[in-house]
């Protein structure tokens, strides 16, 4: 073989090997631990000193609604900068958790504002509005569980690391109760 052809062939093999090696290199995605540590700033900066956001729901519920909204905004802003898929997914789950807390607070406030001595006919619209929020709450909790399921399946090590579990909501049972209440309210409304 002509030496020029031989050199060309060697050059092609070298280039192909280089391309192959480059394509097979492990990705340079930042680690979960590093990004999770950054994510913690979203709630620690708002006064919630927990290692994981899901560690203490009572502490989360004790925060005022504006603080919860700030944590939510922080998380939403963080997602754009996250590169690790596990971090992104857990940030999404945490946003759902914050929404659950906000929604729960709204229901509590509405419910506590109801005066039981007032004619129930006047209260029916508020009860219906609460039930609508309750339905949203069930959807949020169900979405949270689905996200946790997916997270645990895709990233079992990370899930174990932060002890991340599903709520275990029995959504259908709660929806059935809510539907019964809604039907009763609708029929009471007819009587009013």
């Amino acid at each position: 073989m002509d030496s020029r052809w031989r050199n060309l062939l060697i050059l092609i093999v070298v280039i192909a090997a280089a391309v192959g090696i480059y394509l097979n290199l492990p990705s340079q995605e930042p680690g979960f631990e590093q990004e999770y540590a950054e994510l913690q700033g979203a709630w620690k900066s708002e006064g919630l000193n927990q290692e994981t956001l899901h560690a203490d729901f009572d502490a989360l519920m004790a925060l005022p609604e504006n603080k919860l909204n700030e944590i939510k905004s922080n998380l939403q802003a963080s997602i754009a900068n996250l590169e690790n898929e596990a971090s992104k997914e857990i940030a999404e789950a945490y946003i759902l958790l914050i929404n659950i807390a906000i929604n729960t607070k709204e229901i509590q406030t509405l419910n506590e504002s109801i005066d039981s001595s007032v004619d129930i006919c006047n209260n029916i619209p508020v009860f219906q509005s609460i039930n609508s929020k309750q339905a949203d709450l069930i959807n949020l909790a169900e979405s949270f569980d689905l996200t946790v399921d997916s997270f645990t399946e895709e990233f079992p090590e990370e899930a174990a690391e932060i002890s991340f579990n599903r709520i275990g909501l029995i959504a259908e049972e709660m929806r059935a109760q809510l539907n019964e209440d809604n039907e009763t309210l609708a029929l009471l409304e007819l009587e009013c």
Binding site: H54, F57, F127, L137, S163
Partner: peptide, 29 residues
């Protein structure tokens, strides 16, 4: 009238409490 109002109010409280308990106990060791 009061009992009917309380019935719905307590139902709301129970549902919220049930969900909060589920969330709370899901993640503690």
């Amino acid at each position: 009238n009061r009992a009917q109002n309380e019935y719905f109010k307590n139902g709301n409280k129970d549902r919220i409490r049930a969900l909060a308990n589920m969330i709370k106990t899901a993640n503690i060791k």
